[in-house]
Write a protein that binds this DNA or RNA. Structure first.
Lengths: 249, 249
DNA sequence: CGAATCATTGATTAGACTCAACTGAGGTGG
DNA sequence: CCACCTCAGTTGAGTCTAATCAATGATTCG
């Protein structure tokens, strides 16, 4: 298991690598620069001075690290987690291409949690002091930054609703449908996908034990709502899953 | 039960009311303008063009309302809540003097939840478009805004940890200690305070049923950890409560 | 190919929920 | 001013969901 910080694998961008920058980046519309004009884009290009490449299990940042930058996922995926009193981690988010992570930590100058790559992953580093600087000049960027922060707040509120008031089967259904939606938004199949999280991680994310997650996936399969083989999921009856959430025994 | 929006009770600030503005506001050091210099403060004064006064039960904003402004609590307290599929609310936060609410909604231009006054309450209205404008000029304000947003993210992550992995008694202990700390920060007693939330609301906040909250408060009282009479709480053994959280059966 | 990790499934238990009855405080109107 | 009503809180009994403990099977990776 890799344990050293992924930040060491930085890759300063050379002239030849321009294509990798924001102006030509294929996930741009999911990322910060939406709605930014040509000139602003040039400035953002200059901002993204660094990218990091992580192997599975490596961390973008860890709990207690000084906060320096936000990270935009370009390729791959990662989980964010917070650590409880004694070591034991709680998964707080699953993030895929175009998502931005690291927004805790601005307030305290230290990261309150960690971000771990779930597969080989590449992220843009957005130094926060320079981002703030730039946000003062490029109005749409400023607004996008606020949107990203606010959306994270709203996402977590939804998760709180799930953790605070849903039954185990509802939680798993919500989780699957949420993944489905997000894969679809990114142009992948809404019904067939591979879980990047282990049962234990899904359980942690949903406030359940891994056995409970496993049992529910098996039960959903018995009920012909989906097919599951290890981490490969195929949703068979999305409507029934949605009914599981809204309707209550 | 008051049901109309508190926003109707707006109070434009007249010259005679200058004392109510940021520059002379006694909660400034808890609020957005922390660390802003004299000149910046004047500009923020101009920004806070409006305050609202709410009676108990009235709302600062409700789910689905167009997002226009953040609200800084000057006097009183309120709860924020998100609404589940069918009506049933989940309390997402308890906010007191100096806290800022309404940060969901920036991303979607609509509030994803509501904020309800728990007693007679007064809040400053911070129109968000003007706040963004001002943040471009007043650097410390910009950074404070980001801090406030980020701190909210971190707060919710902590709550997720609680909801996802703590036992009922731990949740109640965390809740009480958190209140204690925040009252102390505001110059009130850390050991004697009055709950502004009903048992049902505390339960909703902590992902428990009201009976469970009631039982635990009674049990804590039996164990001499605290004294409870209705909503009046007196913490008797803070250390023991802290041990309840870190140590695990 | 073997070790290690991950996942499934079963049996049992514990903790929180549900349902229900009762108490007390606060507010209203006769 | 007191009787009544309502709402909030307490407490008890029984139930049920998800956790725990445990054994086995499947994958992945070096």
């Amino acid at each position: 298991m890799a344990t050293h910080s992924g930040l060491h694998n930085f890759a300063p961008i050379s002239i030849g690598e321009i294509r990798a920058r924001c102006s030509s980046c294929s996930v741009r519309e999911l990322c910060l620069p939406v709605g930014v004009d040509r000139e602003g884009l040039d400035q953002i290009n200059a901002l993204v001075a660094e990218r990091v490449q992580l192997k599975k299990g490596e961390r973008l940042y860890r709990t207690g690290d000084p906060f320096k930058a936000l990270h935009a996922i370009r390729v791959g995926s990662c989980k964010t987690a917070v650590l409880g009193e004694r070591g034991h981690e709680q998964v707080a988010g699953y993030h895929m291409v175009g998502d931005i992570v690291g927004m805790d930590g601005i307030g305290t100058d230290r990261h309150g949690g960690e971000a771990v790559a779930l597969e080989d992953t590449e992220a843009c580093v957005l130094p926060f002091d320079r981002l703030e600087e730039l946000a003062r000049d490029v109005v749409p960027l400023q607004h996008n930054l606020h949107k990203v922060l606010s959306t994270e707040i709203a996402r977590e509120q939804d998760l709180m609703l799930l953790l605070g008031s849903m039954r185990a089967e509802e939680r798993v259904a919500v989780f699957l449908l949420n993944l489905s939606k997000r894969y679809q938004e990114r142009g992948y199949s809404a019904t067939k996908f591979v879980l990047r999280l282990s049962r234990a991680e899904i359980g942690s994310y949903l406030g359940l034990k891994l056995e409970t997650v496993s049992r529910l996936l098996s039960r959903f399969q018995d009920e012909r709502l989906l097919r599951v083989r290890g981490r490969a999921i195929e949703l068979l009856d999305v409507l029934a899953l949605e009914r599981l959430i809204t309707r209550r025994s």
